[in-house]
């Protein structure tokens, strides 16, 4: 009897521990979802289930069913000008933008697109360079190889702040930050290089697990080294490459510090972290918009993570990670 009740107690304790872990991990996400769907009047209500569902914040961010801009503030003469046939739609929008107050509209989709473009490009470039680099130091023998490998690991130690000031100074001097295109390029390259050491390390570790005999057979059959990379190594490592790609994507998608310094002059090329922060700083009491923007920023990353979870977890516990 005593043994049995002790076991039951232990079982209950175990279940409670699991529930506590789940609650702690998930609670902020539930809070986020709940607040994003509440009307302002319900924000103070501690219940997590909204009494009435308010989807207007999501609609506004995703520009679904938004009313036409109010042109009553536009002077008569300008309105006549807009009627003219020989101006393009682009010019029309530009003129209109000067008179219609758009300060209240949060260009979430623009920021989303900016983040998507820069993260995809940075991840693609990083993975492309890393495939060849990782093949080099995991498969080929040459002097200086282990030095390179250790050097790559060494870059783990440097915090972003150590690179921020010199890179900013150099970019300004090169004139890159004078135009939106240059600024975007500078940030893109910085993101690529931030993810490159991790990509090299993770892919290198993976390539070592591919039996050399497969490659050797192909080499004997007359395939060149580059040919084996293209026909054997890459197809066999698609899973690992996808993982590294997503990992690099996430680093760029999440980055705030460099973006805040580099992009500050050009609101049009703000990335999501910067956009969300400016939304939070500019207006108060807009929790529904902040929370729905948070949800929409988190979802792509979480979905991607679900796809490669198993492998990413393996990579993380093997040390393939940089913060």
């Amino acid at each position: 009897m005593v043994v049995q009740s002790k076991n039951i107690l232990r079982r209950i304790g175990f279940i409670l521990a699991i529930l506590a872990i789940i609650t702690f991990s998930l609670f902020p996400f539930i809070q986020m979802l709940s607040t994003s769907l509440k009307y302002p009047a319900d924000w103070g209500n501690p219940s997590l289930i909204p009494e009435r569902i308010n989807t207007s914040a999501y609609k506004e961010l995703l520009a679904i069913g938004q009313p036409e801009p109010d042109i009553s503030a536009v002077p008569e003469s300008i309105r006549n000008l807009l009627e003219e046939e020989d101006i393009t739609q682009e010019q029309r929008d530009e003129i209109l933008a000067r008179y219609v107050d758009t300060g209240d509209i949060f260009p979430f989709l623009t920021y989303f697109r900016n983040s998507l473009v820069i993260s995809l490009l940075a991840a693609f470039m990083s993975v492309f360079l890393a495939v060849f680099g990782a093949y080099s130091f995991s498969r080929l023998q040459y002097r200086g190889r282990s030095l390179i490998q250790r050097g790559v690991l060494f870059t783990y130690m440097f915090g972003g702040i150590l690179l921020l000031i010199p890179l900013y100074k150099v970019s300004v001097q090169l004139g890159l930050l004078a135009s939106p295109t240059g600024t975007f390029l500078a940030l893109l390259i910085i993101y690529m290089v931030q993810t490159l050491p991790v990509s090299l390390y993770m892919l290198g570790n993976y390539f070592r697990t591919i039996p050399y005999s497969i490659e050797e057979a192909a080499l004997i059959d007359g395939l060149s080294r580059l040919g084996t990379i293209r026909r054997i190594i890459i197809p066999l490592s698609m899973g690992a490459i996808a993982t590294v790609f997503i990992f690099s994507f996430m680093i760029a998608w999440n980055e705030y510090m460099f973006a805040s310094v580099f992009l500050k002059s050009f609101k049009n090329i703000y990335t999501l972290p910067l956009g969300l922060r400016s939304l939070f700083d500019s207006q108060h009491l807009i929790w529904d918009r902040i929370m729905s923007a948070s949800m929409l920023t988190a979802v792509p990353v979480i979905v991607m993570f679900m796809f490669v979870q198993k492998r990413l977890v393996g990579g993380l516990s093997a040390g393939g990670v940089k913060e």
Partner: peptide, 19 residues
């Protein structure tokens, strides 16, 4: 579920904590 806090972007989770 346990991995979500680590995976989700910082910017997407700070406002929930502030709330």
């Amino acid at each position: 579920i346990i991995l979500l806090p680590y995976v989700a972007p910082v910017i997407a989770t700070v406002f929930a904590w502030q709330f």
